[in-house]
């Protein structure tokens, strides 16, 4: 068997089996709650999977449209936040002053529940589009700045001396050495931030927006039991958006920084 087939067999087959088992347990649990225990609002608590899937199908075009709005806003915020975070990281790595000033706050920001700011930002901006973008950007900013800074500093001391021995200009040191060396760090930050940015966007939508996955989630929740399956399909859609944002970052990482150890198919001669 070739390497890819092996990978498929070893990693994805168990995951698929687990996934199927989980779905089976879910379906059985749903039936148990509804028919045996006869719990109140049983289908709201644990709906039949097949009903949710069929609602997902019927509801597909709406979910796609609203999902795209959420994803686009989160993506725009991610882009802004990542750009600003990268800039701060470069400034911090280039100037000790800047680092002393900003680094403690960047670290402290990691301990602060940032999503709690969402209602405040919404209160200030009052524009659902911009509130989503700002929150997503803000969430992205610090993880990217911190991870990027770690990446910029990860350049091997001997590699820096090598550049010095070539009498390389400061910007060539950045361009040829520090930036490529920092890419794994940058993507590490982006992979943390991307699902959080989606969460932030949905949060703003739940607090009041005109479109997006969060809006239809809320609407179906208010309609009550008759919209149970549609509500659950929006929840699934939200989860998929989060996973999708993460996978997008992973794919980008593979394209931009394919040399990393975890992407190597097998060990070299070493």
């Amino acid at each position: 068997m070739n390497g890819f087939g092996n990978l498929l067999r070893l990693r994805f087959l168990p995951a698929a089996v687990w996934g199927l088992a989980l779905l089976a347990i879910w379906e059985a649990g749903s039936w148990f709650l509804l028919k045996v225990l006869q719990v109140r609002m049983a289908q709201s608590k644990l709906p039949y999977i097949h009903e949710v899937v069929s609602a997902f199908g019927r509801y597909g075009s709406t979910l796609l449209k609203e999902g795209w709005v959420t994803l686009a806003n989160a993506g725009l915020g991610l882009l802004l936040g990542a750009t600003a975070g990268t800039l701060l990281a470069v400034l911090m790595s280039a100037s000790q002053w800047m680092e002393r000033l900003a680094f403690p706050y960047a670290v402290a920001s990691q301990m602060v529940p940032i999503l709690g700011l969402a209602p405040i930002v919404y209160g200030i901006v009052r524009d659902d589009q911009w509130a989503r973008i700002i929150i997503a950007g803000y969430i992205t900013f610090f993880p990217v700045a911190l991870n990027m800074l770690r990446g910029l500093r990860s350049a091997h001391p001997s590699a820096l001396e090598l550049m010095r021995s070539y009498a390389a200009k400061p910007w060539s040191v950045y361009w040829k050495l520090r930036f490529p060396a920092s890419l794994p760090g940058l993507f590490g930050g982006l992979k943390i931030a991307a699902p959080l940015a989606v969460t932030g966007a949905i949060l703003v939508e739940l607090m009041g927006a005109r479109n997006g996955v969060g809006v239809i989630m809320l609407r179906n929740l208010y309609y009550g039991p008759s919209h149970v399956y549609m509500f659950w399909s929006t929840v699934v859609a939200g989860a998929l958006l989060g996973v999708l944002s993460y996978l997008t970052m992973s794919v980008l990482e593979r394209l931009a920084a394919p040399w990393q150890p975890e992407f190597r198919t097998k060990g070299g001669d070493r």
Partner: peptide
């Protein structure tokens, strides 16, 4: 050094992974 007269080889190869 500024006239780029040196070539240096370290104990580790220090090759760029990328």
């Amino acid at each position: 050094r500024l006239a780029q007269k040196y070539g240096i080889v370290f104990q580790n190869p220090v090759l760029y992974d990328w």
